[in-house]
Simulated scan of single mutants.
Amino acid sequence: MACGIILSGGLSRRFQVRGEPWVDKALYRIGNEPMIRLVYNAISQVTGKVIIAVNNAERAINYKSVLPSAEYVFDDGRLRGPLAGMYSALSACDEDYAIIVPNDMPYITPEALKRLMSGLRDFDVTTYIYPNGHLENALMAVRRDMALQYMDLLIDYGRSKIFDLIRGLPRISFLNPLTHGIDLKNLVNVNSRNDLTNTVVNVSDRLIKNDISIIRNYTINDILNKDLSKIIGSLWYTLITTDPWPEFRLYAEAGLHFLAAHVLLDSINENVKQLGRRILTSFGVDKA
């Protein structure tokens, strides 16, 4: 079995409506159910235990009134964003595998989650990639021990971006949902109220036609020893050498342009960073 992890520590800024009281997105009702319960209902069907990561005690109390059988943990203060909650939840998990879902994916299905988990037989992390090359934040399945080891390194390097974990793990599987019979609506991440009514995902730009695998044969010790010949094409090589191009080339040639853009943001050259921002803008990312 696997642990199910729901990340629920965000501020939901884009979900708010000017002039109205602040709304906790996780408790916003879709039909008759709070959003977080819809996520819980899906993830609890494929995991043995569900852990909800929150950023304060008040949220834990509020969510317990809706989901009393879940386990609650608080975000780890050494990290920021989704990784902070993920680290605490993985530390509380006693299974080999974990499935991570943000609280704002109300249309996620057990079938979509099962497909992620089945991919962990040969990989350290599995996630979905849209046909246009876009990646969804924080939806993934991971090998628990591997994820924690590499997140400890991220803490040492002062890194907290969700994609740092994907860039840092040696073996990654990017699943094209359309090749696995997964409706793209199931992967919609609700950032604003408009996302609740506009769930049609444009698939006209089908750059990615199949699954993509990235396999880099290095270990934790290779990173600690700074063996550049083994860690080339990874986050660690980029950080140690300040040379983003080997990692950028790996993703760009595979069609992972969204991830390649994030690599460019680690350049020490402002013009290269600007190129990364422009690529992300083409994916509809307005802040990077």
Rank of each mutant, 00 (worst) to 15 (best):
Ile5Lys: 00
Ser44Trp: 05
Arg216Asn: 13
Leu259Asn: 08
Leu83Asn: 00
Asn189Met: 15
Arg115His: 06
Lys287Gln: 14
Gln16Val: 02
Leu264Gly: 01
Gly31Glu: 01
Asp75Cys: 12
Ile43Asn: 00
Phe248Leu: 10
Ala26Val: 11
Ile30Ser: 04
Asn194Phe: 14
Thr242His: 13
Asn271Ala: 13
Ala252Trp: 08
Ala261Pro: 02
Tyr87His: 09
Thr242Ile: 12
Asp205Pro: 08
Arg18Asn: 15
Gly4Thr: 09
Ile6Tyr: 01
Asn56Lys: 15
Gly276Glu: 08
Leu38Gln: 01
Phe174Cys: 03
Thr238Ala: 04
Asn202Ser: 13
Asn202Val: 13
Val66Trp: 05
Glu247Lys: 04
Val50Ser: 06
Ser8Trp: 00
Met151Cys: 05
Arg143Cys: 11
Val50Thr: 10
Lys64His: 14
Tyr157Ala: 01
Pro246Tyr: 15
Arg115Met: 13
Asn210Met: 13
Gln45Tyr: 02
Ser173Arg: 07
Ile223Gln: 02
Val125Trp: 03
Ile220Ala: 09
Asn198Ile: 11
Thr242Cys: 10
Trp245Ala: 13
Ile220Gln: 04
Gly10Val: 08
Asp286Cys: 10
Val188Leu: 03
Tyr97Thr: 04
Leu135Tyr: 07
Ile208Leu: 05
Thr47Tyr: 01
Leu139Gly: 05
Ala70Phe: 03
Thr109Gly: 08
Gln16Phe: 04
Gly9Trp: 04
Leu280Lys: 06
Met105Gln: 01
Trp22Cys: 14
Asn55Ala: 04
Asn103Phe: 15
Pro110Gly: 07
Ile162Tyr: 15
Asn62Val: 04
Asn176Ile: 06
Pro131Met: 08
Ile43Ala: 00
Leu265Cys: 09
Arg249Gln: 14
Gly31Phe: 11
Tyr130Trp: 09
Leu7Val: 07
Val190Ser: 06
Leu264His: 08
Leu113Met: 06
Tyr40Leu: 03
Thr199Lys: 12
Gly276Met: 03
Asn194Tyr: 06
Met151Val: 04
Ile52His: 02
Glu253Thr: 13
Ser91Thr: 10
Val285Asn: 06
Ala57Arg: 14
Ser91Ile: 05
Gly284Arg: 06
Asn32Tyr: 10
Asp227His: 15
Val201His: 00
Ile240Pro: 00
Val142His: 05
Asn56Val: 06
Leu120Gln: 02
Asn41Tyr: 00
Ala60Asn: 10
Leu79His: 11
Met1Tyr: 11
Leu207Pro: 02
Gly9Phe: 01
Leu224Thr: 08
Gly48Lys: 14
Ile215Cys: 08
Ser88Ile: 02
Ala254Gln: 02
Ala261Val: 09
Leu256Val: 05
Leu165Arg: 06
Asn103Ser: 15
Gln45Glu: 11
Ser69Met: 13
Arg171Lys: 12
Ala89Ser: 03
Leu259Phe: 02
Ser267Asn: 08
Ile212Gly: 01
Ser213His: 03
Glu95Val: 10
Ile212Cys: 08
Met1Cys: 12
Asp152His: 14
Glu71Asn: 09
Asp243Gly: 08
Gly233Ile: 02
Thr179Ala: 10
Pro34Trp: 09
Ile99Phe: 11
Asn225Cys: 12
Val201Pro: 03
Arg278Met: 11
Leu207Glu: 09
Ile162Thr: 14
Ser234Phe: 07
Phe283Val: 07
Ala42Leu: 10
Met140Phe: 00
Lys273Tyr: 04
Leu265Trp: 08
Val285Gly: 14
His180Val: 09
Glu270Met: 10
Arg78Lys: 15
Pro68Gln: 07
Asp286Arg: 14
Asn210His: 11
Cys3Pro: 00
